[in-house]
Design a protein around this nucleic acid. Structure first.
Length: 121
DNA sequence: ACCTTGACCACAA
DNA sequence: CTTGTGGCCAAGG
């Protein structure tokens, strides 16, 4: 408690808490947006997405993915480089390179193996 | 204090 | 696999 008589308030904003958790995910492991929210007692998966979009540039953002196993929207390529580097288990990796339409990247992270829980390593 | 914005989620067809 | 629907909820304007 503090001098104003306030009971415990979230010392960190929701934003800081999210970044804290994400920074805590070890290499090769991932959490879903919903998992991060749930860890904070929230169900605002979208909020976590918002926060990552705005403030995620300084944390390992590629370790936060969708519940489907798909990487963050519009960042599949960048994320894949990190996954290859830290040996994150992937499924259905497919690099169809069409000369005309460009590169089609489809893959998912293997959540069964890579899913991380902050309190249960 | 209201309104809009989403790097989302679960479920249904 | 694709759409569509309803829900979630903090941040920022």
């Amino acid at each position: 408690m503090n001098a104003r008589g306030d009971a415990q308030e979230p010392v960190d904003s929701f934003v800081e808490s999210v970044l804290e958790i994400v920074a805590d995910i070890p290499p090769g492991r991932v959490m879903t947006y919903g998992d991060v929210a749930a860890t904070l007692g929230s169900r605002g998966a979208r909020v976590v997405g918002q926060i990552m979009a705005r403030y995620g540039s300084d944390v390992p953002w590629w370790r936060v993915i969708r519940a489907s196993g798909h990487p963050p929207a519009c960042h599949e390529g960048r994320a894949l480089e990190h996954y290859r580097e830290e040996s994150t288990p992937l499924r259905g990796l497919n690099t169809d390179e069409s000369a005309l339409t460009g590169i089609e990247l489809t893959y998912r992270v293997d959540l069964r193996q890579a899913r991380w829980s902050p309190s249960f390593p």
